[in-house]
Simulated assay, not measured.
Amino acid sequence: MTFESNTPRPFTRSNDKKMFAGVCGGIADYFGADVNLVRLLAVIAAICTGGTAALVYLAAWMLMPLG
Rank of each mutant, 00 (worst) to 15 (best):
F20N: 12
G32S: 07
P8L: 14
I47Q: 10
V23G: 02
T52F: 14
N36P: 05
V35F: 07
A59L: 07
C48Q: 10
N6G: 14
N36S: 10
A33W: 15
M62S: 07
I44M: 14
T7Q: 15
L66N: 10
P10N: 11
P65M: 03
G22D: 01
E4T: 15
N15E: 11
A46S: 13
W61Q: 06
F3Q: 12
L63D: 05
L55D: 07
G50Y: 02
G67W: 00
R13Q: 04
A60S: 05
I47P: 08
M1H: 15
C24H: 01
I27C: 00
T7F: 14
T7S: 13
A59T: 01
P65K: 06
V38S: 02
G26A: 01
P10Y: 10
L40I: 09
I27L: 07
P65D: 06
A60W: 04
W61I: 00
C24R: 04
K17E: 08
S5T: 12
L63M: 13
M62P: 01
L37A: 13
R13D: 01
T2H: 12
D16H: 11
P8Q: 14
G67P: 07
Y57M: 02
G25A: 02
S14Y: 06
I47K: 13
P10C: 09
R39M: 08
V38P: 04
W61D: 03
G51Q: 03
L63I: 10
A60C: 09
I44T: 12
I44R: 14
R39G: 06
A28Y: 00
M1P: 14
L40C: 08
